[in-house]
Amino acid sequence: MSDHDFHPLVMQLLDGDLTIADLPAELRAQGEEALRLLAAVDRRPVEVPGVVQRVMRALESRPAPRRPRWKRALEPREIRLRIRPWLLAPALAIAAALIVWIWPARLTAPPPLVTVRFVLVAPDAKAVSLAGTFNQWDARATPLVRAGANGVWTVSLTLPAGQHQYAFVVDGQRWVPDPGAPAVDDGFGRRNSVLTL
């Protein structure tokens, strides 16, 4: 440590971590010298009001700052559309023609609904349900109700006219085709019953 070096405690005083009262008596004089140094710090504002005008004047001759083209392409942007009615009519006509051409089925009347009663005789079953194209083959969606004590299970559904495939699910595991309806191979080794309404 040279003659000019502040004591580490005085350094802490300069840093604002200690006050002069925290210093031992032998360092008080050095502490006061340090505080005189800080008292001479000039914290007054420096005003440069003319800078705004000079900067803006300098910018007049400079090209506008722009992001690279590829960055601009990735930025979100606001798009404003000006709609001209006389251009809108042909556009709407084209749109309507496309709708008729692409989705003709949606524009036709919906098929009529038909109520159907499904029946299965299964005296030993604890639960029976119906799975088919009309309920996305969900084995829990359509449970049948036991009617009396003779093992007859039944449910009524209202379905759109058309062809449906289905099967009964006995006790949640065993898939059984309807013995009273025609059946087709489902492609996976099972038979699906077919109902045409």
């Binding site: 504002p45 420096v46 705004v52 900067v55 803006m56 910018l59 506008a64």
Partner: peptide
């Protein structure tokens, strides 16, 4: 680009002291 003047106005004096 004229909006840039607001930034200059906002920070000119503060940084002039640092620079001085």
């Amino acid at each position: 680009r004229e909006r840039y003047a607001q930034l200059v106005e906002r920070y000119r004096d503060r940084y002039a002291r640092y620079a001085a």
